[in-house]
Design a protein around this nucleic acid. Structure first.
Length: 463
RNA sequence: UCCAGAGUAGCUCAAUGGUAGAGCAGCCGGCUGUUAACCGGCGGGUUACAGGUUCGAGUCCUGUCUCUGGAGCCA
């Protein structure tokens, strides 16, 4: 394996004259009379290592196998490059070709491919510049998420992937079953008899870990989850996946103001971290994907977010003098066009909208003293829309019961959730960040399917 | 799921209802240092699939599939 100090990233930091080994995959090769130039990458950094092969150095049968896509291992000396384009290069003395890649059938060319085509070859696209950069940024983002919470004493918890409560109200669920779907056992009334199913009742993939995270928060104060979630919605957009990753912090002794403040600190921290550690990758995104991406991130990392209530947002929209496709009316949810107008045109930066009408929000959100709104917050950012959704949770048992009833939900499955309010309740709050939405914001990538290695969408779960 | 657009060579795209083409990639050759290298040559097609209209369909009609954009749902 490649050990620390041996990555191509590390090789660039070695002094000229060092004899070393470089391993990776061939990006491209150029030939002149008597000399060949091979660029290799091991994914450790954006920049390829240029290997120079002078005529006669390698046997012809080795040389002819060094083609785009091949896996190679060079030995050589690090030398100053006489030509512009790279400060150092490897002067090859030997080469082992671990795996050739037949050039006439290897699908990745050295020139531009569409994102749609690359998506069809997800087993090879990590070797493309764009996807190497995307997955390095994804790694940095993941690390920054943990570091932010760990530095603040949050406990990393794991909430279940499989759940038997189908009543969270957060969209369609994937059912998990070991029954024979062609011929399930049936009851007298022909309904499926789930007592024979694996869990003895219907089970689903979780759409959120929030309710369980609240359990841990009411024991360990500050906790967070970071894992996959699943939505069986038939949504076909550049912003939705059926399987995506979500970060959900949950804090006891926390109200909505604290919640909003943490969300802002959190976003700014991870943006700063990626700016500081992924400079070359971000420069590439700015050059080839989205020109404004770096300046936007620099700006957002420092500027405080705009904060308005839902009621104020409605007033702003009404006063805009625009004609909306969907009417602006207190009591109905903000549409995509409204959110975009607020964050992209009015404020031109992230906007936190709080205190939404109770009838359009989930049962667990804390009812305000005005009885009409709940302590919900959405963080909206230009180009993406909603990137964070959160709330202060209803900690009063009577009010929570009323809200369940109001939302048409039975109390029984929530017996433990209600009991948390009976035994040692405290005000608490949390939010959810969609990791892939954040990735789109960080990279400027236009389609969410291109910021996760193996996207799952309706009708598509290949690889 | 709804609305709109698209599907032609490995990739990106041309082609008034009348002989399916180009650039790139690949292959062969050339060039003493290339940087999306460059120059010359060569091969490359069930026009997404199934029907239909027509003397004749890549082109028009119907259906299906896939992709893209917008909307809804949301992170």
């Amino acid at each position: 394996m490649i050990k620390p100090g041996e990555y191509i990233r590390d090789i660039f930091a070695q002094p000229v004259g060092t004899v070393l080994v470089a391993r990776g995959w061939v990006k491209t090769r150029r030939d002149s009379k008597g000399i060949s130039f091979v660029q290799i990458s091991d994914g450790s950094c954006f920049t390829d290592l240029q290997v120079v092969i002078e005529a006669g150095t390698l046997p012809p049968e080795t040389l002819e196998q060094i083609t785009t896509g091949a896996c190679v291992e060079f030995t050589g000396t690090l030398v100053e490059s006489p030509a512009p384009g790279q400060p150092v290069e490897l002067k090859a003395s030997g080469c082992t070709v671990h795996g050739a890649a037949h050039p006439s059938s290897y699908p990745l060319q050295k020139k531009g491919h569409t994102m749609e085509f690359l998506r069809e070859i997800a087993h090879l696209r990590p070797r493309a510049n764009t996807f190497g950069a995307v997955f390095r940024v994804r790694n940095a983002l993941s690390y920054a998420i943990h570091r932010f919470f760990q530095d603040r004493g949050f406990i990393y918890i794991h909430t279940p992937i499989i759940t038997t409560s189908d009543c969270e109200g957060a969209g369609a669920l994937f059912q998990v079953t070991t029954l024979d779907v062609a011929a399930p056992p049936r009851l007298a009334d022909n309904a499926v008899d789930y007592t024979h199913d694996f869990f003895g009742k219907p089970a689903y993939l979780a759409v959120s870990g929030q309710l369980e995270a609240e359990i841990l928060a009411l024991a360990m104060a500050n906790v967070y989850t970071f894992g996959p979630t699943f939505r069986a919605e038939n949504s076909n957009t550049p912003r939705h996946l059926a399987e995506f990753w979500m970060v959900e912090p949950e804090m006891a002794f926390c109200d909505l103001d604290d919640d909003v403040e943490l969300a802002q600190e959190f976003l700014q921290y991870i943006i700063r971290y990626v700016l500081d550690t992924c400079e070359a990758d971000l420069a590439f995104f700015a050059k080839r994907i989205e020109p404004t991406v770096v300046e936007t991130l620099e700006h957002v990392a420092q500027a405080s977010f705009e904060r308005i209530t839902y009621t104020e947002a409605i007033r702003v929209l009404e006063a805009s003098g625009r004609s909306w496709e969907f009417p602006v009316e207190w009591g109905s949810d903000l549409q995509a066009e409204h959110e975009r107008y607020l964050t992209e045109e009015v404020f031109r930066r992230p906007v936190v909208v709080t205190d939404y009408p109770r009838q359009i929000k989930a049962f667990y959100m804390r009812v305000n003293d005005d009885e009409k709104t709940v302590r919900a917050m959405d963080v909206l950012v230009p180009r993406i829309g909603e990137i964070i959704g959160g709330s202060q949770r209803e900690e009063r048992p009577q009010v929570l019961r009323e809200r369940l009833k109001e939302c048409g939900l039975p109390e029984e499955p929530y017996w433990w959730y209600l009991q948390l309010r009976e035994y040692g309740t405290v005000e608490h709050a949390g939010f959810g960040l969609g990791v892939e939405r954040m990735m789109m914001y960080l990279t400027g990538m236009k389609n969410i399917r291109d910021v996760i290695p193996f996207p799952r969408t309706p009708g598509s779960a290949d690889f």
